[in-house]
Amino acid sequence: MSTTTQAPETTRTGLLLRVLPVGMYAGRSRALVERSFLVNRRTWLQVVSGFFEPLFFLFGLGFGFGKLIGDVVGPGGETISYVAYVAPALLAASAMNGAVYDATFNLFFKLKYAKLYDAVLATPLGPLDIAIGEITWALIRGALYGTGFLTVMLGMGLLTSPWAVFALPAAILIAFAFGALGMACTTFMRSWHDFDLVQLALVPMFLFSTTFYPITVYPGAVQFAVKCFPLYHAIEVMRALCTGYVDASIVGHLAYFVVMALVGVVVASRRLGKLLLA
């Protein structure tokens, strides 16, 4: 029997690693994902419950409200039902909520109370492995929810374009970006009180980022502010893909999330390093 405890020498290059201090990455974040699977195997009910929240919203707002509102103007100027208008936005919002929840509350608990990462860092794993491992788990969970939600949309005839096959990968990118940024924010939090700020950011973003009505209802200055919110871009992407009115602007929206994800991962792993490797 032999032990191979040498950290693999591969995957130590690339843009991300050049802006991070050496020794922060062992290329073994998969082990942390494996841990998450093991833990959640015992609490699967809690995992499943996350699937229903966006569905409740879809039925409550789509059908309840939709009856009241009737048809609306879609992204391509076409007439669509209100439920078809709201559903892609709810998909985007649930990608955001799920990722942020995992990267803030769950991470903070493991960081400050369970002392999980103190134990992990005594092994070859570094802060970047932790950041990637934890975000990956959040994405796997998010992908499961996204698949469920899209399946329901398909069943309700709300996916009217072949572009919709890209909705799931787009949801994963959006979740990645929110998760990474949420994780970066968590590393600055001192106590549970600071999480009120997370709610303070998420709730208005959910309500005002064109989730329920088009951006044209706002005056110019407010429109500009809304366009700064990440959720606005997520909703634009989702609405375009689900209805099939895709144009070049989608590249800009996606680029927003690529940058957000990179900044989030770099800040999160640097800060984790500072906190844990003092």
């Binding site: 073994r28 082990a31 942390l32 093991l38 092994t123 070859p124």
Partner: peptide
Amino acid sequence: GVVPQQDNLDNELTVRQNLHIYGRYFGL
């Protein structure tokens, strides 16, 4: 091998799983 001053076992896992997953962190 590191034994820290304060036990930082993984309370979300069983005794055996603690050993198992720790070994996985080492790539075993």
